[in-house]
């Protein structure tokens, strides 16, 4: 992605405003300064680029845009110039990530205790398990369960820890994001990647890697699953919903025997917006509240979240959030 490409995308905008209501930050402010159209105009005019700082980077506007503007390209180019915090080096190192999270945990008790990422490698491993950086340190239990599950169904796996680069993009670090993907590509050595963080999976798919979300892999391979029958609602995490990954989550849940009650807009942004929720951002909080109400209205016992950052934000809001794997008997 280059400045030129971003400019080309911005020029495609005909200012129709069809993106407005799709944008969670516009929904809670109803102010053009918090809208995709306003941000694109700011970029075009080279004025007030700080309006990008409130963007949660969920890319819902791209789904609503009738003119096919790839907002993502504009966002990355703009946020690079106004970013206040680049988390790239933190997410790349599990140690640094754990330390940071441990420090944050003091004032944010909803964060689980960070743990050492799991290392595991079967001989002649045919499938790569990619937990994603946050899952690897905060939800190690999921990684263990995935390894056990694949062993039980006779699939040899290797766990590859690391980052997909999405957090880099959120900070406008295009180069770092590209390098993160390249590292993964090398380590996967052409083997299929099964991700435990659905937004990371979406990012890898977009970069042309053979990546599957956990539920997607199970459904596509027709693998057997057993689990607890619970009444749940499904949150479609933003980037993953661009690739329609939610339908596999639902199918896997059906196979498990769980009952799904749908919320009003399953792919509505959870409010986390990368790390915005950690910073106690007002807009992020307002969006989180909208999402929480959508979930609460369903009467479900838990919300299924296949992406760790969404999960953390749900925990912060006092919700019971589970991954598909949590409902499985391994």
């Amino acid at each position: 992605m280059t400045l030129e490409e971003a400019e080309k995308e911005a020029l495609k905008c005909v200012h129709c405003g069809f993106c407005l209501e799709s944008c969670p930050t516009y929904n809670v402010t109803r102010n053009e300064l918090f809208s995709p159209r306003g941000r694109v105009l700011a970029f075009r005019e080279g004025k007030s680029l700080e309006v990008f700082a409130s963007c949660l980077f969920c890319r819902r506007c791209e789904l609503a845009c009738p003119s096919g503007v790839n907002y993502s390209k504009i966002y990355v180019e703009a946020i690079r110039r106004v970013r206040k915090l680049d988390v790239s080096s933190v997410v790349e190192s599990p140690k640094l990530l754990s330390l940071t999270l441990r420090a944050l945990r003091r004032s944010r008790p909803y964060l689980p205790e960070p743990r050492e990422p799991l290392t595991h490698k079967d001989e002649r491993a045919e499938v790569v398990i990619f937990p994603g950086c946050v899952t690897s340190v905060l939800f190690r239990g999921l990684v263990e369960k995935a390894v056990k599950y694949f062993r039980a169904v006779g699939i040899k796996t290797e766990v590859v820890n690391g980052c997909c680069g999405l957090a880099h993009l959120h900070s406008g670090n295009e180069e770092g994001a590209r390098r993160a993907v390249e590292r993964l590509r090398e380590r996967a050595k052409g083997r299929p990647i099964v991700g435990l963080s659905s937004n990371c999976v979406a990012r890898l798919k977009e970069e042309g890697l053979e990546a599957y979300d956990f539920a997607e892999f199970v459904v596509k391979r027709g693998l057997p699953v057993k689990g607890r029958a619970e009444l749940v609602t499904v949150h479609d995490s933003c980037h993953a919903s661009h690739f329609g990954l939610g339908k596999y989550t639902r199918e896997a849940l059906r196979m498990l025997g769980a009952k799904v009650v749908e919320m009003e807009e399953p792919n509505y942004e959870c409010g986390a917006g990368g790390y915005s929720f950690i910073l106690n951002d007002d807009v992020s909080e307002a969006v989180s509240e909208v999402k929480k109400n959508m979930i609460a209205k369903t009467g479900a016992e838990a919300v299924i979240s296949t992406n760790p950052v969404c999960t953390l934000n749900f925990l912060r809001k006092g919700l019971r959030a589970l991954h598909v794997l949590d409902l499985m008997e391994a």
């Binding site: 053009e32 300064l33 105009l41 700011a42 005019e45 004025k47 007030s48």
Partner: peptide, 18 residues
């Protein structure tokens, strides 16, 4: 926070008429 002035007001400089 609900009054926009200065450069940011540019974002209200036009509607869908170009």
């Amino acid at each position: 926070e609900w009054v926009v002035s200065g450069e940011a007001a540019t974002l209200y400089s036009h509607d869908a008429f170009l």
